[in-house]
């Protein structure tokens, strides 16, 4: 409960957020993800938020921050699996998530990142 798992897939890191994060957990995710990017020399980060009902301004900002930091560390971030209601809410909130790429699902996200093909099977789990 205290940690969001970060999986390594080839040159990419896969983060699947399965719980409603509180602010501390979101900050912890940001910190551990940036250090894992360096540690694993990752080229891309895939963040799956398909389980989230709600993305408020704080979480949204945190995701944008992660993407910005990853970019500085030479890694591309793709946000996948956003629910329509979350997308609507984010837009209405006025949060446009600048500098963050999105994809409909993990499959497309991996293609976007040109990640290794073994991601195929792993991506299937999420659908």
């Amino acid at each position: 409960m205290d940690r969001i798992p970060i999986l390594k897939m080839g040159e990419c890191l896969l983060v699947s957020i399965q719980v409603d994060m509180d602010d501390d957990l979101a900050l912890a995710l940001r910190d551990s993800l940036t250090s894992r990017i360096v540690q694993d020399k990752a080229r891309g980060v895939l963040i799956d938020i398909s389980s989230l009902d709600i993305v408020d301004s704080f979480i949204g900002r945190m995701l944008a921050n992660i993407a910005a930091m990853a970019k500085i560390l030479d890694a591309q971030t793709v946000l996948v699996g956003m629910r329509p209601s979350v997308a609507m809410t984010l837009v209405e909130l006025g949060l446009s998530l600048p500098g963050i790429q999105t994809a409909l699902n993990v499959d497309r996200g991996l293609k976007l990142l040109h990640c290794s093909p073994q991601g195929e099977s792993s991506a299937a789990k999420h659908h």
Partner: peptide, 17 residues
């Protein structure tokens, strides 16, 4: 409805924070 549920929850989240 779902969209409104997300709206209310998000609004409450903002105010609560």
């Amino acid at each position: 409805q779902t969209g409104n549920q997300a709206r209310v929850a998000t609004a409450i989240s903002e105010l609560a924070r």
